[in-house]
């Protein structure tokens, strides 16, 4: 009974994680410019792979695996915003334009 419950939970985590990864991939193709694509990649993508790591932890069920998977999860969640931030800053400093739907750009007004 417990085994079935754990299998169900693991399956749910896997599927939701894969779904978020797919959504992030679709977003990376549909969204119009670098900055909006970063939203999809850094949020949905991170949550996707993080959920699948949690699924491994749940499936293995022993503490050392759980600890490592949790460490990996925290690592991804902490590094994803940093790399997104660095990329956004680099792209903006080098003058890659925002999409023409964009309504305002305070950073540009600030820099010039």
């Amino acid at each position: 009974m417990i085994a079935v419950l754990i299998a169900l939970l693991t399956a749910l985590l896997i599927l939701v994680g894969a779904g978020f990864a797919l959504v992030a991939a679709i977003g990376i193709n549909r969204l119009p410019d670098v900055y909006t694509r970063m939203h999809a990649a850094s949020k949905a993508g991170t949550v996707g792979s993080g959920l699948m790591l949690l699924a491994v932890a749940l499936h293995a069920g022993d503490l050392s695996t759980l600890a490592r998977a949790l460490a990996g999860f925290f690592f991804f969640v902490l590094t994803a915003p940093i790399s997104a931030h660095l990329l956004a800053m680099a792209a903006h400093k080098m003058g890659y334009p925002l999409h023409e739907q964009s309504v305002r750009d305070d950073l540009n007004d600030h820099q010039n």
Binding site: L31, D33, Y35, K43, V77, S102, R104, L107
Partner: peptide, 23 residues
Amino acid sequence: LALSAWKVAVLVMSPRMELKPGI
């Protein structure tokens, strides 16, 4: 984090994306 992933998912999957991005 969970909320934001969900919002991005909803935004991406909506058929017509109404975006007003900006800084």
